[in-house]
Design a protein around this nucleic acid. Sequence first.
DNA 1: ATGCCGGGTACGACCCGA
Length: 259
Amino acid sequence: MRIASWNINGIKARQAQLEAWLKQESPDIVCLQEIKTVDEGFPTAAIEALGYNVRTHGQKSWNGVAILSKLPFDEVHRGLPGDDTDEQSRLIEGVFSLAEGVVRVCCIYLPNGNPVDTEKFPYKLRWMDRLHAFVEERVRLEEPFVLLGDFNMIPAPIDARHPENWWGDALYRPESLQRFRALKALGLTDALRAVTDEVRYTFWDFQDGAWRKDNGIRIDHLLLSPLAADRLTDVRVHRDVRGWDKPSDHVPIEGLFAL
DNA sequence: ATGCCGGGTACGACCCGA
């Protein structure tokens, strides 16, 4: 089973690239972030024609997440619990039946948090606190659970070409990193780091020739519960997609599982 | 070092992302 994540930075601008990538790779489940449209604006019929079931949690202009799956959805959950006033669409979860049980897949677009001297940073921290409580419940279920998406989080110096330039940024500063470590300490494994110690970036800025200079960061992640980590066989970062025509600034990352 | 790029909204220019 192949489970992927991709921040596509606008489905309207990226539909052709998404369809090309689905045809090329044919992953079983694909989590999308930043669809930047309401549910009605998502090209559901076109994606269904490629053999996927589609569930969206959209929003006008910004944010928005979706899950595409070759397997039927047993359950779908939209939104992160813990704040009824939060109107940003940043989490969607699906549950799927397998021959030997279930797999629970939770797609997130964690707030960026910059600039840190605005309300955006405390929103990021509160969102991470709510995510912690949510994941605590999920871990207690003792299922194969995959939490994946755009975490807007640089876990360690190796995960940035120029870490010194990022220190203090909302993606790489103590308050954010402490919460990311606490999340993993609930028993989740960073899938990429379970298979390699090498540099793997998932994002290159559009500006200043970041892709040409390989000035990247690793901020898209798969975190695995013990039963999911036990079945992990490989992680692939689809770096070449950043070189396509009209690319997103993020590339797809996928976990391969013996499930 | 921040908005140089790129998308969304809407059609001029601003908001947003990382």
